[in-house]
């Protein structure tokens, strides 16, 4: 597939001059870029470049010392992770962060938690609104299960599932929140080619069908170049490239960072 030439007029999220350090170690230095509504945006870079830290800043898990993030037109410095979730940001994790003691179904149901409102008393009685709510969200979750083709493991405890399926369940949990911005941290790491193809298909389908904006970190260059609209390249916590896949392929700094430079 060619890199798709689409245009995205609206900015969903913009990162301005972000710097983050841990006790003297600079994880991110003065980084700025934006994510447009509806695009697939990739963040790439060598190991330790600060990619995951970038995602952690976006969803409020880390708080950068300098700079600001503007999301849906609101500028903010400090945000708690659950506030980011309430604003429509969902994510998956580099090292799978599923709830291992729960079934696939329950894991994906947790993704709907922000939409489940019935209070303690209704829950305790499990009648009326609580019951209707549970069934209504179960239907939504079943659609996601069907979409991701994981019906057969619906009731299996996730701790027992193979790696590829766990990644898929984790994507399901993020999708269940019906996010506007979906952050994927190495969704295809450690997968074989078939699993990668499946995952690519899911990501593109999500983007096409639901119009979800996607920001992903990935090491597999062919995948990145195929599915993303624009790419940001980080190295040692600094931004060294930003543009369409074709532009990135020609970028001198990027080539140097990836291939090294002969002296």
């Amino acid at each position: 597939m060619d890199s798709r030439l689409r245009s995205f007029p609206d900015v969903l999220l913009s990162v301005e001059n972000i710097s983050l350090s841990f006790g003297g170690v600079n994880a991110l230095t003065d980084i700025s870029f934006d994510i447009a509504k509806g695009e697939v945006r990739a963040i790439i870079g060598p190991n330790g470049a600060g990619k995951s830290s970038m995602l952690n800043c976006i969803n409020g898990f880390y708080h950068p010392q300098h700079g600001a993030i503007t999301y849906k037109g609101v500028r903010r410095n400090q945000m708690k992770p659950h506030e980011a979730a309430e604003q429509g940001i969902a994510r998956t994790f580099q090292n799978i962060a599923l709830f291992r003691g729960m079934s696939t179904l329950d894991n994906i149901m947790t993704g709907r938690n922000l939409r489940m409102k019935t209070g303690l008393l209704w829950q305790a009685l499990h009648i009326g609104p609580a019951r209707r709510e549970e069934i209504e969200h179960r239907k939504a979750v079943e659609r996601i299960i069907e979409f991701l083709e994981i019906q057969h493991i619906r009731k299996a405890p996730v701790g027992t599932l193979p790696y590829g399926l766990q990644k898929r369940v984790e994507l399901g949990r993020a999708l269940a929140a019906e996010p506007e911005l979906l952050l994927l941290d190495e969704p295809m790491a450690g997968m074989n080619i078939e699993e990668k193809q499946d995952m690519c298909r899911f990501i593109l389908d999500v983007n096409d069908e639901f119009g979800t904006t996607i920001c992903l970190i990935e090491h597999d260059m062919s995948v990145v170049m195929d599915i993303s609209d624009r790419v940001v390249v980080l190295d040692y916590g600094r931004k060294i490239g930003d543009g369409t896949p074709d532009e990135i392929k020609k970028n001198e700094a990027v080539i140097t960072a990836y291939l090294g430079v002969g002296h």
Binding site: K80, P81, R100, Q123, A130
Partner: peptide, 26 residues
């Protein structure tokens, strides 16, 4: 009833991985 509904799931999510639970909105 409590542990099988969304409240119970929120507890189990905190139990299994509190950081992830917070990031998905608990």
């Amino acid at each position: 009833n409590l542990v099988r509904g969304h409240i119970g799931r929120s507890w189990m999510a905190i139990r299994d991985m509190d950081i992830a639970a917070e990031i998905i909105g608990f």
